[in-house]
């Protein structure tokens, strides 16, 4: 708990956090508005919002989570952090405890705000957006952002480098599905975190933004897949963090 309070203070006392959140909002709302007015659009408002998260906001989430964990290695502050909190498991745990609610709130609010921007710009489509669907999408986007942040904390703790963690997470989310898909390994593609995450946000049966085809499982299974990836990344990061010298 004490470690979490420390991480909370740390998160909000650097400018990069505010830059990340501000740029996420600007990117999301700008993209939503532009898509809504430009597209002859057969996408629903919630689908446009999810595209905004998938193509833009998730990279800001990635950046924030990477800076929070791997950034400690580039500034050297990890040595201070581990001196304050020598039980090492508590460090990534505290970072997750701070990032997860922040990113959940970010995703939920941005998804809802995006829909609020899109709907008035698409008067002819308004009737097919139900309040329930907006709520479901907003919660799913929040959940995706929170889990992606924690997944990145695990990878960043393992790699100890901002550039390395960004690259690996980017490859895992976007490049791995394309590569595996090219090799015809669809059974693997469907269970990669980026694909599972999109499924969670778009809802059951919707074609994935990465593969163009729907995944063969429900959004709840998709959520479980994402949780499993996050758990593995955190377990690896934690094991390496505890074993290594700081």
């Amino acid at each position: 708990m004490a470690a979490t309070r420390a991480e909370w203070t740390k998160l909000w006392s650097v400018r990069s956090t505010w830059w990340c959140l501000g740029s996420a909002a600007a990117l999301m709302l700008g993209q939503s508005a532009l898509t809504a007015i430009s597209e002859s659009a057969d996408s629903s408002a919630t689908a446009i919002a999810v595209e905004g998260v998938f193509y833009l906001v998730q990279f800001v989430v990635l950046a924030l989570a990477t800076l929070t964990m791997a950034g400690e290695y580039s500034t050297g502050s990890i040595r201070s952090t581990l001196q304050w909190v020598p039980v090492r498991r508590r460090v990534p745990a505290a970072k997750c405890a701070v990032l997860a609610p922040t990113l959940f709130a970010l995703g939920t609010v941005l998804a809802a705000a995006a829909v609020a921007v899109i709907v008035p710009l698409q008067p002819e489509r308004a009737p097919d957006v139900s309040g329930g669907e907006v709520l479901r999408t907003a919660l799913a986007v929040g959940g995706y952002c929170a889990l992606l942040g924690m997944l990145t904390v695990g990878i960043a703790a393992a790699l100890r480098s901002v550039a390395g963690a960004l690259t690996v997470t980017f490859l895992l989310l976007l490049v791995a599905p394309v590569l595996a898909g090219g090799m015809g390994l669809m059974a693997i593609v469907d269970y990669l975190p980026g694909v599972a995450g999109t499924n969670v946000m778009l809802g059951e049966g919707a074609p994935s933004l990465l593969t163009g085809a729907p995944v063969p499982y429900s959004e709840f299974v998709g959520f479980a897949v994402l949780v499993a990836w996050t758990a593995v990344a955190l377990a690896v990061g934690d094991a390496l963090l505890r074993r290594r010298d700081a």
Partner: peptide, 26 residues
């Protein structure tokens, strides 16, 4: 302990740095 005085986030103020430190150990 003072081991490495520069092992800090350069963008955080002195006060906030110590505040986080205080929180970490109640």
């Amino acid at each position: 302990a003072l081991l490495d005085a520069k092992a800090l986030h350069p963008g955080r103020t002195a006060e906030k740095n110590l505040l986080a430190m205080a929180h970490s150990n109640d």
